[in-house]
Design a protein around this nucleic acid. Structure first.
Length: 251
DNA sequence: AATCCCAGCAACCGCCATCTG
DNA sequence: ACAGATGGCGGTTGCTGGGAT
């Protein structure tokens, strides 16, 4: 049985949002907070699908969004996180304050992919392109080694940790969905992270601005990394970058 | 000046996960 | 336990603006 559409398609606006629609959405969320996206359009006087409203808010209108170019630090962090999580854009976005999954996904597809390819690195496997075609079973990837932080401790195992862990385990501890079998990397790169307490905390600004936001709670959820403190991974692995610092200072 | 091409990005679509009655 | 409703995610599409010809 197919799913019913999330809204009546008829009489719904599609395509680019107008300033008026943006304002209606902002005003409504300011007054009522993020709530039931399905009923929001009607309540806010918008002729939009609830999903469309959510997307517009999450990707464009949220006040805590950081617009503008990605920094080199963010570039590096995205590459590192992608090597760990694969195309789990929401997980990656959760570690980059002020950035959205859509934004990162677009940035990856338009900039980073090309950058890696120009360096001869397969953006999916993070291995040299020649190596991905003639793959050795036992040779660890120097690229991965270089990309991953030395602070990471791969020896410990915490089976209740990372949200993506089932994926990691499923794919032989290697998440990229490249052309080569991920299973072949089994035992080469144990990404089951075991990390200690952090000195970096969820930004207060994030807490304050999104008190009602399930999204925020999800992204900074206690226990996400196996501890009681919600933590930005980039901080935990020792790459606290400019964006993290900015977010912290804004508190 | 007109046209073409392409990169960048916002938005859509369909599927999956989770929640709720 | 189950089915339907809803939220969320990732892949893809298509519009737009800028540069090249």
């Amino acid at each position: 049985m197919g799913r019913s559409p999330c809204c009546e398609k008829a009489h719904m606006n599609k395509g680019a949002w107008t300033k008026e629609e943006d304002q209606l959405l902002i005003d409504y969320i300011r007054r009522h907070g993020e709530g039931c996206w399905r009923s929001l359009p009607k309540s806010a006087g918008l002729q939009r699908c609830g999903k469309s409203c959510r997307l517009r808010w999450m990707n464009y209108l949220r006040p805590d969004l950081k617009r503008g170019n990605f920094t080199h630090e963010e570039d590096d962090l995205i590459i590192k996180l992608h090597s760990m999580f694969g195309n789990k854009w929401s997980l990656i976005a959760g570690r980059l304050p002020g950035r959205t999954d859509n934004e990162i996904k677009n940035y990856w597809n338009t900039h980073i992919k090309r950058k890696l390819l120009s360096r001869g690195i397969d953006p999916q496997t993070h291995r040299p392109i020649t190596e991905t075609t003639a793959l050795s079973k036992t040779t660890p990837s120097p690229q991965i080694d270089a990309l991953l932080p030395s602070e990471l401790d791969f020896t410990g195992v915490d089976h209740q940790t990372v949200k993506a862990e089932p994926l990691l385990q499923e794919e032989g501890n290697y998440t990229s969905s490249g052309t080569t079998s991920a299973k072949e990397y089994e035992c080469e790169l144990n990404l089951e992270l075991s990390m200690g307490p952090t000195t970096c905390h969820r930004p207060e600004s994030n807490r304050a601005a999104n008190t009602d936001s399930a999204e925020s709670e999800r992204r900074w959820a206690p226990g996400m990394f196996g501890t009681d403190t919600g933590v930005c991974l980039c901080c935990r692995v020792g790459f606290q970058n400019e964006s993290c610092r900015i977010a912290s200072f804004q508190s």
